[in-house]
Design a protein around this nucleic acid. Structure first.
Lengths: 223, 223
DNA sequence: CGCGGCATTGAACACCTTCAACAGCGGTGG
DNA sequence: CCACCGCTGTTGAAGGTGTTCAATGCCGCG
């Protein structure tokens, strides 16, 4: 019965179909295998903001383990194939599974912190390059980069809803980056000729401890 | 020896003094008793963004339980008195302590999500009122509201660094809110004559208990 | 008293939005 | 097969929101 069990644990979603609704009780999490999804929020007057992106390999949403519900909707940005991971199973046999999810929560928390900095203090160009850089690195950590290319299924409207801009301005910013030779699009695949120019560390030096900025601290301490 | 033990677990910080530095290893968390603190990020060119606020009663930072380090600095915005909670003790005797911290992580995560929406899609006036409303409600949940008044130790520069605006524009926005009778400042205390006008629910309907499964919590701890 | 941090106000400017129009493209139905 | 439609991307022009620069007043504190 293994094949049948596996089949039960895989589910598919069409583009714009919801993986979760607002306030819905969740007794499972998804592990994305193909396609992208997003958590979003719509204000009463229609303004929309994407607050999280889920890529293949990501858990969606790890904090459901603790909260038991999704307080914002999750929607597929592309056709999605996902594995369902029942929380009951994780609770029954705690251990590795719990830690994986908690690590997922921490990663999401760190990404959100970075986005707050981007949205609060960075220009349109910086926000877009930050997003492309983050996605490029997440794709790379899931081994989905080939020759500085990766799939980029987001529409300009999607990007706008992530970076807090209008679609037309995202278009202009992308055009600017293109004219400067920093990005190239061919259909739904993104090519970054010089990843370092976007602040993306080369693959070898994975992560090196950044070390604090003394001038920055001095500004705070100048009391 | 009780008094001596207690004394060891209380520490004080002056305004602008750091509770944690960037990348520092943490073997404890703080529980704030008096005063406010903030996590912040400074860009190379000096732009500053506050990514979290810590009020009396809050844990700072609950996720250190899982990450073991602070990747952004924490600084006191006022004189701070805090209780240190060693993580070794929590790990040694898991139970209630772990869940309190994990709940703190989830609350921080939800607040960050709301701030992404604010920073991405809301106007200056909305961002400032959102902040005042959030702080008012957090103060109220810690029983620190008297007659629609609470202490508001943030300077306009601090507020600007939270809501992603310049201090002068924050000043104009506050002046606008004041002229509309929505807020009043007397020194460092904030008075909200009509909390409902800022979207703050009245005290009675405080919170409809989110309803969590204590048994589930206990299972997680076994990990 | 004098100094430094904080609040306040004005004027000019920049960045991003808004509105509008159009092109390309895939899908659907006549 | 082609016409039509909707979605996505692209570009221009005008306008608004928030920034920048600068000056002034206030207040607590050494």
């Amino acid at each position: 019965m293994r094949t049948e069990q596996d089949a039960q644990r895989i589910c598919q979603f069409r583009r714009h179909e919801h993986l979760a609704h607002k306030g819905e009780v969740q007794d499972k999490v998804y592990k994305l295998q193909e396609g992208w999804a997003s958590r979003y929020c719509v204000l009463p007057d229609g303004r929309r903001q994407i607050t999280a992106l889920f890529l293949p390999g990501d858990y969606c949403e790890p904090q459901w383990l603790l909260s038991g519900k999704s307080d914002l909707p999750i929607v597929a940005l592309t056709p999605v194939k996902a594995q369902t991971v029942p929380l009951a199973g994780i609770h029954a046999k705690p251990g590795d599974g719990v830690m994986k999810l908690l690590r997922g929560v921490l990663e999401a928390h760190d990404r959100q912190t970075s986005w707050i900095v981007s949205l609060g203090r960075k220009s349109a160009i910086e926000r877009v390059t930050d997003l492309l850089a983050e996605l490029f690195q997440r794709m790379r950590s899931h081994k989905q980069i080939v020759e500085n290319c990766c799939t980029m299924p987001l529409t300009q409207q999607d990007i706008a809803d992530v970076v807090g801009l209008t679609p037309v301005h995202v278009n202009r910013v992308l055009g600017d980056l293109r004219s400067r030779g920093l990005v190239r699009f061919s259909g739904k695949t993104l090519h970054l000729p010089k990843p370092e120019a976007l602040g993306i560390p080369s693959l070898s030096q994975a992560e090196a401890a950044p070390g604090r900025d003394p001038a920055a601290d001095r500004r705070i301490l100048a009391a």
